[in-house]
Design a protein around this nucleic acid. Sequence first.
DNA 1: GCGAAGCTTTGATCTTGGTCAAAGAAAGTT
DNA 2: AACTTTCTTTGACCAAGATCAAAGCTTCGC
Lengths: 233, 233
Amino acid sequence: MSDCSTCVVRNRAICASLETDELQLLGHLGRKRMIKRGETLLWEGDPAPVVANIIDGVLKLSVNLQDGREQIVSVMYASDFIGRPFGKESPYRVTAMTDAEICVFSRSSFDSFAKEHPDLQNKLLQRTLDELDRAREWMTMLGKKSATERIATLLVELSDRLTVDGCSPTTLYLDRFELPMDRQQISDILGLTIETVSRQFTRIRKEGIIELPDRRTVIIKDRSRLKALAEIA
Amino acid sequence: MSDCSTCVVRNRAICASLETDELQLLGHLGRKRMIKRGETLLWEGDPAPVVANIIDGVLKLSVNLQDGREQIVSVMYASDFIGRPFGKESPYRVTAMTDAEICVFSRSSFDSFAKEHPDLQNKLLQRTLDELDRAREWMTMLGKKSATERIATLLVELSDRLTVDGCSPTTLYLDRFELPMDRQQISDILGLTIETVSRQFTRIRKEGIIELPDRRTVIIKDRSRLKALAEIA
DNA sequence: GCGAAGCTTTGATCTTGGTCAAAGAAAGTT
DNA sequence: AACTTTCTTTGACCAAGATCAAAGCTTCGC
C-alpha cells in the first residue's frame, strides 16, 4: 500500500478528487513501483492488468508497426493517469522513457473502486477529455505543421510539462531541461526522420534560439522566438 | 422534448445506459433539431452551450487556423456524442458535413442529469476513451502513412461507419456509398492537398480498386486490395 | 586507455507530395 | 440554353523532407 497523503502528485493526480478517508481506501489498493528507462509496463493487445498514476518520470504510449517502426501517440508526465479502465485491453504499448516511479492498481480493483466513487469517475472523464484535446492538437501538428514548427512545438511543450515534480506552479517554464528521449524517439513523436530532426535542431541552434550543450540538454535562449516558430504560418 | 423510446439511435447512443424511466426524464431535457449541410453548431472558444447526440448525418470537428486553412480532427456519425460536458468551452468548431438531425441538450441541464446518473457518466467515459483511441489511430496515420494509404484508410472507415442509420449490424460494410464531404474536406482530414487527393483517387480508380461514378459516389470493387492499401508497409 | 557499439550530425541525391496554372465538369441562375 | 460559379482533374515544376552513405562523438566494457 501507499501513503497517499504525502504523495508528491496528491493534488494533481486524479486522487485529488477524493476525501482523506476515501484516499486511504484507495491507498490500500495501490502500490508504488519503480520502472527503469526502456522498460515496458503494458504491451499492446495485453488484457491490460493495471492502471497507474505517474509519480515521477516520463512514459510514452506507442503504436508499433509490423516493420519495427513506431508512432508515439502520447508522452505522459508526472500526475498523468495511465491505462484503460473498464473493459478493453490497452491498444498501446506503454514504455518508460526515463527511470520512473508509478503508483499501480490492478485494473479490477481500481474499476470497482471507481464505480463506487462518482467523483473519481468524473475526474477520470475530465482527464480523458483533456487527453483527447491534447491528442487532437497533436493531430493538427502532424497534419499541418512543418518540421521546424514540430520541433519548436515539442520543445515548448517539454519546457512546460517537465517542471520539477511536486508543487511547481503551472506558470513555471523551464529554460534548461533534459530531453527525456533520444533523437529517434523525437522523430517517432513528430512523424519525421531522425536526420530531419537533427538538421532542425542544428538550424534553430545556429539561429541562437536554443543551445545544446550535450545531446540530452536543451537551453532555451529566446523563448518568444521559439514560441513564434511553434505557431503555424 | 423527444420521444426517446422510438429513437433510431436509442440502443447505440449513450442513452443505451439508461432505464426506460430515466430515459423519459432525459427525453424531457432533449430537443430534436435539424441542421443543414455547412451549418456550424458550435464555434471554437464558445462557452459551448450545448451537447448533443447525432441521430442522422455526419458532422466534423475542426481546428481553424488563422490563415483560413483547417485541420479536421474528427468526423462523427449517427449515435456519436458531441460536445464538452463539465466545464470547459469547446476547443473545436462543430459543423454539419451533410444535412443532419441531432438531439440537443443544454450543457447545464445535461451536466446535472449526468451527475446523478453514474451509469450515464460511465458510458460517457467509455465513449471518450474510444474516441481517444480513434484520435490516436488517426495520429498514426498522419505521422506515418503515405497519401495512398491515407485515402484507402478513409474509404475503409467510411464504408464501415456510414451504414444505414438505425439498426444495421456492425458487420455490415457498404460497397457503395456517398462521400459526406468534398475533396477539399478530405484533404483537410488527411493532411494532404486537394490535388494530391484527386490524384490518388484517380490512381486507385485506374487500378480497378474503386469506381467513381460521380464526384460524391464511391463503389468499392475490391475490398481486400483496398484494405491492403490502407495498411502500413 | 583502447576498441566496439551506439548515437548524432552532415552531405549528396532522390521522391513524394506541394504549388502554380489551366482546362474540364457539374450545378446553379437568369 | 447560355453563363457564372464552384468543384475536380490534370500537367509542369518545385521543394521539403526522406533515403542512402559516411564521418564524428559519446558511452561503455575490458
